[in-house]
Amino acid sequence: MACGSTALWAGETTWFCCGSSWGPCGSAGTGACGTCQSNAHQAAWPNTSAACFSITRPDLCGETIVQRACGSVMNVKHQCSGASVCVTVSDCGPRTQSFCGEATCCNGSCRTNRVIDLTPAAFSAIGNLSSGKLPVYIYE
């Protein structure tokens, strides 16, 4: 799998649903890239375009997140367990600005701000969905 190993970013990840799905996820749609589906290893990135950035506004939390277009491939690694998953950017998110300063730590080493959102398939590969959020390193 073409999955990188160069450090790109670090922060918190949460999970979200998209594409055809059940329950409240049924109305989620296929995301900003039009390709998002919950059962694929995909992610939402807060800066897929200028329009996306204006919604997520990570800069308000001091995160000058680089732009990565739809289709970019990233390797997301759980900071505590070291488990990792390879994902394709398929949507715009999360809303970093709504949770500025929120930190998730591993044994005292903390990651701050929500900088990536994973589909249930990707999130469950490195953690438990019932945990809601995880501290991660992101490589490309």
């Binding site: 649903c17 409240p24 438990n128 019932s130 809601g132």
Partner: peptide, 11 residues
């Protein structure tokens, strides 16, 4: 190994 039933995580 693990099953999450009806789980949602909404913004």
């Amino acid at each position: 190994d693990a099953v999450w039933v009806n789980i949602v995580n909404l913004y």
